[in-house]
C-alpha cells in the first residue's frame, strides 16, 4: 500500500478535463485522473457509464469512430497523445489493449505473437526469442511450446486470451489496457488472467475495465467509479470498497442501484 501511495507522484498517464461526444451525445464529462506507473487501475460502473469509452481514449481507439469529438488532454509520460505530431500506430504500440472476447488472428500460435514484432521491423533471428519471452510472460509457454505451429484458434478460450495478452506483450508496450478481459472466461481461466495481471504490473502500467466488482477489488491498486459519463470517485481500491466517500459509489458497489 505504501508503495502504491508513493507511486502517485510518478503519474504515467494524466488525463485533464477530458470531454467526449458521440455526435450530440456527451459520453465523457470533464474527466481528470492520474494513473500511476506500475499500478493496476480498475474502472467500474454500470453499462453505458463511459468507462470503455474512457479507456479507449488512452490509445486513441475512438479515432476510428465517426462523429466522435474529444476535448481536453491525455498525457502519457508527459506527452499529449492528441498532439499533432503523434502517430496513432506508434502510440498503440506503447499502449497495448486486450479485449473482452479473445481475438487471435487465424494463423499459428507463433505467427500471432510474431505478427506485431515483424510489422515493427524485428530481426528475423530474434523472433524465436521474442515469441518465447512473450508466451512465458503471459504464462502460456508451458501449454504451447510443443505446438507453436498449431492454429491459435485451436486453443481454449482462456488460452486464447492469454495468447492475446502475449501478443500485446510482444511489441513491448509500457501500458496495457484491458477491456473486460475475463467476462467470457470460466473461473479458472479468470483466476489465471487475474494472477497474470497482478504479476505484469511489475513491468507495465495496467488499466482494466471490469463489470466484476470482486475482480476489481482483488487485483487493482486504484479504482475509479464512473456514472453517466462522470468520474464520480477515484481512489485506493481498499478505500473504495471499504468506505467509499460518495453515496452513489456505495449504492453501486453494494447493489442498491435501480
Amino acid at each position: 500500500m505504501t508503495e502504491a501511495v508513493q507511486n502517485v507522484s510518478q503519474s504515467q498517464i494524466e488525463v485533464e478535463n477530458l470531454n467526449l461526444w458521440y455526435g450530440e451525445k456527451q459520453a465523457l464529462k470533464n474527466i481528470s485522473m492520474q494513473i500511476s506507473k506500475n499500478s493496476v487501475t480498475a474502472l467500474i460502473g454500470p453499462s453505458g457509464c463511459g468507462k470503455s469509452t474512457f479507456i479507449r481514449c488512452l490509445n486513441r481507439m475512438n479515432d476510428l469512430i465517426k462523429n466522435c469529438r474529444i476535448e481536453g488532454r491525455v498525457l502519457i509520460e508527459g506527452k499529449d497523445i492528441y498532439g499533432p505530431d503523434v502517430d496513432a500506430v506508434d502510440l498503440r504500440k506503447n499502449v497495448g489493449m486486450v479485449f473482452q472476447k479473445p481475438n487471435p488472428f487465424p494463423m499459428s500460435i507463433y505467427d500471432n505473437i510474431a505478427y506485431g514484432p515483424r510489422i515493427h521491423g524485428a530481426n528475423k533471428k530474434d523472433l524465436d526469442g521474442i515469441v518465447e519471452q512473450a508466451l512465458r510472460s503471459a504464462a502460456i509457454w508451458e501449454e504451447t511450446s510443443d505446438r507453436l505451429k498449431s492454429p491459435a484458434l485451436s486453443l481454449s478460450g482462456g488460452q486464447q486470451q492469454r495468447l492475446c495478452i502475449a501478443r500485446t506483450l510482444a511489441v513491448k508496450p509500457r501500458i496495457i489496457l484491458f477491456d473486460e478481459p475475463t467476462s467470457a472466461l470460466d473461473p479458472i481461466s479468470t483466476s489465471r488472467i487475474e494472477e497474470l495481471i497482478m504479476n505484469l504490473k511489475k513491468d507495465y502500467t495496467i488499466v482494466i475495465v471490469t463489470h466484476n466488482m470482486q475482480q476489481a477489488a482483488r487485483i487493482s491498486d486504484y479504482t475509479g467509479f464512473f456514472l453517466m459519463g462522470e468520474l464520480i470517485e477515484f481512489g485506493q481500491t481498499r478505500q473504495i470498497f471499504h468506505n467509499p466517500q460518495e453515496r452513489s459509489t456505495e449504492d453501486y458497489i453494494t447493489g442498491r442501484f435501480g
Partner: peptide, 9 residues
C-alpha cells in the same frame, strides 16, 4: 453475497 463497503462493515 460478498458484501461490500458499509454492508461489509
Amino acid at each position: 453475497q460478498q458484501p461490500m463497503a458499509s454492508d461489509l462493515r
